[in-house]
């Protein structure tokens, strides 16, 4: 049986791994990497459904997701550098001045 279900299940598993990483990891860089993992899981779902439907719209959406991920990585890592410069830490729990 070669069908979309395998790929969708794999995407769901990848998304869950990324989600668990985002909530568990405290290093801001690793949290970013887990977000990238979740974006890739979404991409995999788009491509699986594109193959299932026989339409290439999913490929175009995956292309845009990759572009947005590149922009997000650039801005996000710039913020990480700025935070590290002012706070001297990558530990998310210590960057909480908005909380109080």
């Amino acid at each position: 049986m070669a069908a979309a279900n395998h790929y969708l299940a794999l995407a769901a598993l990848l998304f869950t791994i990324g989600l668990v990483g985002v909530v568990v990891k405290r290093n801001i860089l690793v949290v970013f990497m887990c977000v990238e993992l979740m974006l890739n899981a979404a991409n995999l779902t788009f491509l699986a459904f594109a193959r299932h439907q026989g339409s290439m719209n999913g490929h175009a959406i995956a292309f845009f997701v990759i572009a947005v991920a590149a922009a997000e990585a650039a801005v996000g890592l710039a913020i990480v550098i700025a935070v590290f410069r002012t706070r001297g830490t990558l530990w998310m729990d210590e960057v909480s001045s908005l909380k109080n």
Binding site: A4, N5, L8, A12
Partner: peptide
């Protein structure tokens, strides 16, 4: 939150199982 993450996985897995076999179209 980890427990909630596995909850998400359970929901997705159930949705995929209930959608039946999604066969490929010829492209």
């Amino acid at each position: 939150a980890v427990f909630g993450g596995f909850g998400v996985l359970a929901v997705l897995a159930t949705a995929i199982r209930d959608s039946g076999i999604l066969h490929w179209k010829t492209v």
